Computed example of a mutant assay.
Amino acid sequence: MTVAIYARVSTNRQDNINQVAELEEYCKRNNRAVFRTYKDEVSGVKDTRPELDKLMQDARLKRFNQVIIWKVDRLGRNPLHMLQIVEEWEKIGIDFTVTTLGIDTSTPMGKFVFGLLAQVAELERRFIIERTNTTMSRIKKELTKKGYYITKEGKRITKLGRPKGKGDSKPRKKRGYYLRDYKKRSPPHFSKSKTRDNEG
């Protein structure tokens, strides 16, 4: 079986030598051929990481059969994002192993444990949705009652909606003239000769 090793530390002042050494030893004991070792030096809170992104690309190309990590938090600090990663591996047909916990999705027990983790993550998803809906309901009530709402940052808002970006102030073109000039200017007229040429 060909495996990929993933190791991560939060900053470049730390090193992942111990992680990699233990994972390589695990592979030797279990007759695993290492395709590549992916090492990130970035916070686990970030969903996008250079080496993790490369690992995901190689996984989609099915260049290995299993991903091995030292501890669960080495994969990340966001449970929902971690679950999405492992679910994608499962769909591709790649197993996932956490050596310090003995979780191995290639075994019945490993799949069972992963199923429990998936259920916990699903509960977290629902809690997030519930909290979001509760917050939005409270904001709407405040806007209806007072006409404004004060955020945690102390900002005063008077309506819900996406904030305007820099590009929102630029006029958009439609059929050769600007939308903001639509009521002031008429669309350009075409000569009969051009119309005939276009029809031909």
Rank of each mutant, 00 (worst) to 15 (best):
T2L: 13
Q14K: 03
N16R: 07
E22R: 09
E25C: 09
R29I: 11
E41V: 04
S43E: 04
D47Y: 10
R49A: 05
R49P: 00
D53A: 15
Q57W: 04
D58R: 04
V67W: 01
I68Y: 03
I68L: 05
I68F: 01
L75V: 06
L75D: 04
G76A: 06
L80M: 10
L80Q: 08
Q84M: 12
I85E: 05
V86C: 08
E88P: 00
E88H: 03
E88Y: 01
E90D: 07
K91I: 05
I92N: 03
T97Q: 05
V98Q: 01
T99S: 07
T100H: 03
G102R: 08
S106P: 02
S106G: 15
V113D: 02
F114L: 14
F114D: 03
V120K: 08
E124Y: 05
E124P: 00
R125V: 13
F127Y: 11
T134C: 13
T134Y: 12
M136T: 11
L143F: 02
T144N: 10
Y149A: 05
Y149F: 09
E153L: 10
G154T: 03
I157L: 12
R162H: 09
D168Q: 05
D168V: 08
R175P: 00
Y177A: 12
Y177P: 00
R180F: 07
R185A: 13
P188Q: 12
R196G: 00
